[in-house]
Amino acid sequence: MNIDLILQNILNPPILFFLLGMLAVFFKSELTIPQPLPKLFSLYLLIAIGLHGGYELSHSGLNIYIFTALFLAILMAIIVPIYSYFILRIKLDSYNAIAIAATYGSISAVTFITGITYLQTIGVEYGGYMVAGMALMESPAIVVGLVFAALFTKGSDDKEDKKTDWKEIFREAFLNPSVFLLVGALIIGIVTGQKGWDSMEPLFGTLFKGMLAFFLLDMGLVAAKRIYELKKVGIFLIMFAIAMPIFNASVGILLGYFFELTKGDTLLLALLSGSASYIAVPAAMRLSVPEANPGLYLPLSLAVTFPFNISLGIPLYYYFITILWG
């Protein structure tokens, strides 16, 4: 694999800030980011990516190609948690297998955003509709998780308790803050088009990379603190957290190749397929499958899969793509 591809990705200020955040924890620096700020950054990133995607969609309109890309995104979000569950059942009980499978079936918005920054760095085009693909991929894994929980685990004895659960969990699946804000910003971007984007561009376009660097600095701190929890997780799951993203991304790449997506769109599909959620799905799983241990699924997605994807995964998947596309 071409070392330049890796360097082009890693020698990007946001990624270097992520590594800096991790180093701060390893060297026991007192560096912290005051609590409400990371929340602001994550809201900012969701609005920025939604608005920009919507603006591009308002340009491109809808066609068969876009529907194919969106269909592939949903397909991946449904099949990944299904086969992940059966792989995980080799070593785990149903509860933990469901929670981890759903976590890996869903997506990480920041991984996707970092992938977009990489494509911009190397000058490869991608479509704004992939943002819609990302929004569509958040929820199916939660639904698969809930169905599996109903099929493969002993339900709660208290029927009344179960009834309230469903309402709360479906709200969590389809109206969770990140999906809600992302879809909202996307629609605002579509409705306001060029004029809207021009007025928002100074905040959500020009400052974007700087804000991403700030957010990734915080993610570095958060991820590194979780690394110490990996001791309890065991080698099978750590291997899973690296092998599974590569496998899922490869399936995404093959689908992209087969359905003739562009290189940029295929990389984003691969990243969405290969990334694991650490916000929406863990929250939904904690509500619906409290028996599963968050000490397993959170460190795996935060401390293994996320750092792997944004540092080595992105160039690795792009390398696969350049081989296939020639």
Partner: peptide, 14 residues
């Protein structure tokens, strides 16, 4: 028992 809770993420689980 459920690990470290650092209250530093946009996530109610932490």
């Amino acid at each position: 028992g459920h690990g470290l809770k650092t209250a530093d993420e946009a996530n109610d689980l932490l």
